[in-house]
Write a protein that binds this DNA or RNA. Structure first.
Length: 317
DNA sequence: AAGGGCCCCTGAAAGC
DNA sequence: TGCTTTCAGGGGCCCT
């Protein structure tokens, strides 16, 4: 469940290790993780490329590649065929870790244990002797190669999603008056809306619950029903939570580790997520758990009131 | 536009 | 103890 703070932490730990390095080899152990091109073509395409930069957008990691000038290997079918293949010498690698993906920088002989070994899907060899391994126990994550087949449905989909990401919820990505306006035109419930990456990008299930708790807003409130003051408080809560989580290098519940395999330490700071039945740190009421939009949702029923709309489900007299 | 449901996938936890 | 079932979750996709 890497969300913005985790992906940013991974980016920060990996960047100094891999930027400037040249990829000397690629092993694709599970073809389905590479989108946009076949495993052999992928390996052939990016071998020899230099990692020019490592960026993050929302929960996506973008590995910018730079290609040396090289003579096209002569095609067995003759030169004319080359135009139909993947774009020669081009393409970046876009990674989405989804639930449990890990990008690990390590020594080539590093033993990451049986579970990770079993779920190592792509291995990049770097020119300084290290490796960058893509490990994913849940098999949800993907590596998209932008130099691949432009007609590939999954690739196009991912690029479109990336292009349509909403602003980041903090660090100058979004000021609160704009946020207030964005909320005002939406009837959706606030939690699913914050999870919508085309609305704001980077929030996942954990931080959404934390932000709403901090702002004292019930996850089922309609976005447009939030007052100006509430919008402002929520905006501030998002900035604070994200900033603090990045400072503490992310939240490790289950699988998350950074680019060097280290856990983050924000888990101890979570106030509601995963704490059903425990006392609310603010008022002592038991933290409740419910399901919103199919996601486990934690909140304090006293600090986060649902004032609006009569709960028509079962308001026993 | 909004929302519900299913799917992908497997380790961990709960249930028996 | 050990086997079986349930659950978690980001996001695509389909349907209403």
């Amino acid at each position: 469940m890497p969300e913005l703070p985790e992906v940013e932490t991974i980016r920060r730990t990996l960047a100094p290790r891999v930027v400037g390095r040249t990829i000397t080899g690629v092993r694709v152990l599970s073809p389905k993780f590479v989108v946009g091109t076949g495993p052999e073509e992928f390996a052939e395409a990016v071998t020899g490329a230099r990692i020019k930069g490592l960026d993050r957008r929302g929960k996506f990691l973008i590995m910018h590649l730079e290609y040396p000038k090289r003579a096209r290997a002569s095609s067995p079918c003759g030169g004319e065929e080359a135009r139909d293949g993947p774009a020669p010498g081009g393409g970046d690698i876009i990674v989405h870790l989804k639930m449990a993906g890990q990008l690990l920088w390590c020594a080539p002989r590093a033993d990451l244990g049986p579970t990770r070994r079993r779920h190592t899907h792509v291995v990049f060899s770097l020119d300084d002797g290290h490796e960058l391994r893509y490990v994913d126990t849940r098999h949800f994550g993907r590596l998209y190669f932008t130099g691949g087949d432009v007609a590939d449905r999954a690739l196009r989909r991912a690029l479109q999603t990336l292009a349509r990401l909403g602003p980041e919820p903090c660090q100058g990505g979004l000021d609160w008056p704009t946020f207030r306006e964005m909320l005002a035109s939406r009837k959706a419930r606030i939690k699913p809306l914050l999870l919508d990456q085309s609305f704001v990008s980077g929030l996942g299930n954990i931080y959404t619950d934390e932000c709403l708790f901090r702002a004292g807003i019930h996850p089922l409130r309609r976005a447009s029903s939030l007052s100006e003051a509430e919008a402002r408080v929520l905006h501030r809560a998002m900035c604070e939570v994200i900033r603090e989580a990045i400072e503490l290098r992310g939240t490790s519940v289950r699988d998350y580790v950074d680019g060097e395999g280290r856990e983050g330490s924000y888990a101890g700071r979570l106030r509601v997520y995963g704490r059903a039945g425990e006392a609310c740190p603010r008022c002592g009421t038991e933290i409740a758990r419910t399901v919103v939009g199919g996601r486990g949702t934690y909140f304090c029923p006293r600090c986060q009131r649902l004032g609006e709309e009569p709960a028509r489900s079962r308001t026993n007299v």
